[in-house]
């Protein structure tokens, strides 16, 4: 059986290529039908914020690529409730259908996966 991989994305979409590169790991794995999960943690939750205008920073919109996750079979999407609260983001306004987890649930989530990559 294929090993499951949790990708923890911790960077804001405007903070260099890190967020995009974390997403690329998920999309590449989805193309191979691997059992993947993606967790948005710390500044990574900014990737889920509504109403972003990346063109003002001459950046491409990461949102469109994030929307591709379910199409690539990556449907296990999670966000840290503590990270959301610290940054003033409401769970019901997020751009992706994520499961919001408290700290105890986060620990259980990470333990459930065979492998973890943090970017």
């Amino acid at each position: 059986m294929a090993k499951s991989l949790l990708i923890i994305s911790r960077q804001a979409p405007w903070n260099g290529p890190s967020a995009r590169e974390a997403l690329d790991i998920a999309l590449a794995g989805g193309a191979f039908d691997l059992p993947l999960g993606m967790l948005f943690l710390d500044d990574g939750v900014f990737q889920l914020a509504p109403g972003q205008q990346p063109t003002a920073l001459q950046q491409k919109n990461l949102g469109a690529n994030l929307q591709a996750l379910p199409m690539f079979g990556v449907e296990a999407l999670f966000a840290c409730s503590h990270s959301l609260r610290q940054r003033g983001l409401a769970a019901d306004t997020l751009e992706l259908p994520v499961q919001v987890l408290d700290d105890a649930a986060l620990a259980a989530l990470i333990a459930r996966f065979d492998q973890v990559v943090t970017l």
Partner: peptide
């Protein structure tokens, strides 16, 4: 090469160990 090589390596190994990252 591409990211598929990371997944392939992770699948074939007993452990995936990462260094660095943000």
């Amino acid at each position: 090469s591409g990211l598929g090589q990371l997944h392939e390596a992770a699948q074939s190994a007993d452990r995936l160990i990462c260094f660095g990252g943000d």
